[in-house]
Every structure is written in structure tokens, then in C-alpha cells.
Amino acid sequence: MRKTIFIIAALVFGGLMLGALDSIHPFGEPGNVPMDEYFLHHALEDRSSENVVTSIVFDYRGFDTIGEAAVLFTAVCSVLALFREGAKK
């Protein structure tokens, strides 16, 4: 009974999500994209990087990469804390 309600809810949720996904923009035609055009046009002269993705990952959005490293460090710390040595208690 409860399970059935949850499955129906998941289907409703999925249906609404599909409806939204269908109307973001036609696939492959995002229209006017000022931020990405800026990256594509300025990455070479600003950052001397042939690879635009690299210049975004390590420069324009470099702070996210620090955050990413912090998440990795956090996960390593958590795993080390969970499997630490030490007496029962």
C-alpha cells in the first residue's frame, strides 16, 4: 500500500521532471549564450590556454576546484576516521 503510493509519487515526479526537461531549450540550440561565448572568445588571450575547459576549471571557476579538492579530502578523512585503528569504544 505504502510502497504503491511511493511508486506513484515517483512517477508523478518523473513526469513533471520530463515535462520541464522537454521545455528547457531545443536540444543542441541553446540560443544566446553570453557567458560561454565570453569563455570561448577570451580564454586564449586571457589565459593562454588552448583548452577552454582547462581555463574554466583552473581559472574562471577555480574556486569550485578548490571546493572539489576539499570534498575529496573530506571523504578521505571520513574513511580514515571510520577505519581507524584503536580499541573498542
Binding site: 503510493i5 511511493f6 509519487a9 515517483a10 508523478v12
Partner: peptide
């Protein structure tokens, strides 16, 4: 899994209400 189910249920209700 019931906890997850309540979460999915509330997402569905909130989304349906707002949309």
C-alpha cells in the same frame, strides 16, 4: 526506504502544487 518514499512524495506534491 520509507523515509526516501516520504521525501519523493513531498517532492511530487510540492512540484505539482507549484506547477
Amino acid at each position: 526506504q520509507d523515509y526516501l518514499g516520504y521525501f519523493v512524495l513531498s517532492i511530487a506534491i510540492i512540484t505539482a502544487l507549484i506547477v
